[in-house]
Design a protein around this nucleic acid. Structure first.
Lengths: 227, 227
DNA sequence: CGAGTATTTGAAGATCATCAACTGTCGTGG
DNA sequence: CCACGACAGTTGATGATCTTCAAATACTCG
């Protein structure tokens, strides 16, 4: 066991605890979590949920990021969302997962079987409420995505995406700029925005020329805070 | 009080009971529903939920249909969904409704304050589970909508919509045809599909020419069952 | 019947997609 | 450490789809 994982079994060092469901659990349930809790590493490009396959656990992303996608019969792929640290995966138990969730980089998740959550919910009513709330958040994001795809131009889509990414994972740099790292490829972003790779690339160049983007590489983008 | 409403106060004649949450309620709660239940008529084009405004009740559509929409700052409108008999509106209590819900025709809803549902949930645990399940259904529909907008051509969008509509409200006619009534305008459909009115109209004509659609009027469409 | 609105159709133009070539980046191995 | 190969991303030229603007037709309601 590597040194980084030595204390991995303890919830004390969990970074996302306060955003998570653990704070809803009563002390007894929390002890149970400490004991049975399973962390799981997910290697880059590995799926943790697969479209059409059953899902019986809720995963909380501790480190890394994921890509949610759906496939059309003929192979066209739509990326329906990206998931970052602190976010949830598989909020509900399902016979058929609605989408595939694949790690964009080597990632670490904390695993809560829904069976366990159902039991915990009996003594900790906040658990189900939090799941409902998370489900609502997912739904709102989906609605915003629908507006983006249905009504926005290529430039608006790319700008919206960069802004959202900056809000999710960006870090402030000097002079009113934010830097947001990419864990996803251009193709992933294009598939998320309903555009072709080439259109995305051209649009990024255009936004840079217009000064909205300061610099953009394979790894990250630096953009203006406002707008 | 008109004759049609004479027994409107009774749940006995409710058409959507078995699809609804009432079956999850224990007898005592059900009595409570019978007593406090509020039905509400919603006139054509009236909003029952408004984007940005709080919502404190769950509505079950008994008669009629609704249009869900979101507005972009500059007034562009995206229709994010349509709601028919037996469907739910305002599944969760919110400070800010994510969308506007407007009646497409004179409609009738049954109203359950979330406060009431929370109380009922204490003795009828099935209630929250059903709400979670309904939320999930909404989310899945949103995901399918995302795929439609992100990856499908105009013709595929229109065909998908007609098929979905037929499944939701269609009635079989002879010879492998279904008839689905429209309660929404062409503009509503176009705003749902991320197309312009004119493109929708042209595409409908094209589908008719191809034989996928038998006939289409302002009021209804008749289409082939398969495909 | 007639005014007003909804829908369809036509012609021209814009945006985005496609096909193709080029450039940059990363990792590997000499 | 540099060179090479492979892949990721950018740029260019052309074309298709969908939009826009405009006009005609159909439908609805008083």
């Amino acid at each position: 066991m590597k040194s980084g994982d030595a204390r991995a079994g303890s919830c004390d060092i969990c970074d996302v605890r306060e955003r998570s469901i653990c704070m809803d659990l009563d002390p007894r349930a929390m002890q149970q979590v400490e004991k049975t809790m399973a962390r799981r590493t997910v290697a880059k490009h590995r799926a943790i949920l697969s479209e059409g396959e059953p899902n019986d656990s809720l995963y909380i992303v501790l480190r890394g990021s994921f890509r949610l996608s759906k496939l059309l019969e003929d192979g066209r792929r739509q990326v329906t969302g990206f998931i970052f640290e602190g976010d949830f995966l598989g909020v509900r138990q399902t016979d058929q997962s609605a989408y595939t969730a694949e790690a964009l980089e080597d990632s670490l998740v904390c695993c809560f079987p829904h069976k366990f959550l159902d039991e915990a919910a009996e003594t900790s009513p906040g658990v189900k409420d939090r799941l409902i709330a998370k489900g609502q958040t997912e739904y709102h994001k989906a609605q915003d995505h629908i507006v983006l795809l249905g009504k926005k131009t290529a430039e608006e889509r790319v700008a919206s995406f960069m802004k959202t990414l900056a809000e999710a994972v960006g870090e402030e740099r000097g002079g009113g700029f934010v830097e947001a790292p990419f864990s996803m490829s251009r193709q992933d972003i294009a598939d998320y925005l309903g555009l072709r790779l080439e259109t995305l690339s051209r649009t990024l160049s255009a936004l840079k020329k217009k000064g909205f983007i300061d610099s953009v590489t394979r790894k990250s983008v630096i953009l203006k805070l406002e707008l």
